[in-house]
């Protein structure tokens, strides 16, 4: 409490109001963005379940490449985490390399997904057209939309990379790279969920 009677003589003191809870607004907004992405994929996967229960569903094996891609994206998460540690330690030179490695691994994942699609087409699982079945179409939409989000993650990494060159990321300014890491790990976990879901429901 603060002593003083600035406004009214009857008042003996002005009481101090409570602090309100408050977080970093941008980090908070990122979490909300992630919630909306979760809802998007929740919609797709529940539509998948509902549609599958109705029958007339093409059964096929998932491409083995998905396993390789899963390992790649897990590695990219590890190198993302490494980048964060480097930023905290102000090891800027290595940080640049780590961010580049993360982006390259993300890129490798995308290329891997493309080859997985090629395998699917080779085994006559089509996205659209006369011989297509919603089972295949769903697979392409779900993996494709995840890839689109991963591209946005790579753009985010590129922004972080530019910021490291401009010396805007270091142990005192971590918000940007922390947000990037949150988003990147989220995309990784999202893939694990989607892959697990597809493994269980195909």
């Amino acid at each position: 409490m603060i002593a003083g009677n600035t406004l009214d003589n009857k008042a003996e003191f002005i009481e101090e109001p409570q602090e309100t809870l408050s977080m970093h607004p941008q980090k908070f907004a990122l979490w909300l963005f992630i919630v909306s992405i979760i809802m998007l994929f929740a919609a797709f996967t529940s539509a998948y379940i509902v549609r599958r229960a109705e029958g007339n569903w093409l059964e096929f094996d998932l491409p083995n490449l998905f396993w390789v891609n899963t390992i790649i994206i897990l590695m990219s998460s590890a190198s993302m985490h490494w980048s964060l540690i480097l930023a905290k330690k102000d090891n800027i030179d290595l940080l640049k390399i780590a961010v580049v490695i993360t982006s390259l691994l993300g890129f490798a994942f995308l290329v891997g997904q493309l080859y997985a699609w090629k395998d699917l087409v080779a085994s006559s699982v089509w996205f659209a057209g006369e011989q297509s079945n919603p089972a295949g179409s769903f697979l392409y939409v779900i993996t494709g939309l995840h890839a689109v989000h991963l591209i946005s993650g790579i753009v985010f990494l590129a922004i972080v990379l530019v910021s490291t060159f401009r010396l805007k990321i270091h142990s005192k300014r971590l918000a940007r790279i922390e947000m990037c890491a949150t988003y990147w790990h989220f995309l990784d976990i999202l893939w694990l969920y989607l892959f697990g879901f597809l493994l269980l429901n195909h």
């Binding site: 909306s36 992405i37 998007l40 539509a47 659209a128 939409v141």
Partner: peptide, 23 residues
Amino acid sequence: LSFPVLFSAALLLIFDRSLGTSF
């Protein structure tokens, strides 16, 4: 929580309309 779901419906509808899927 709800608008992303409409987005997913619209997206599938667009695929049905323009790309020939059968959702």
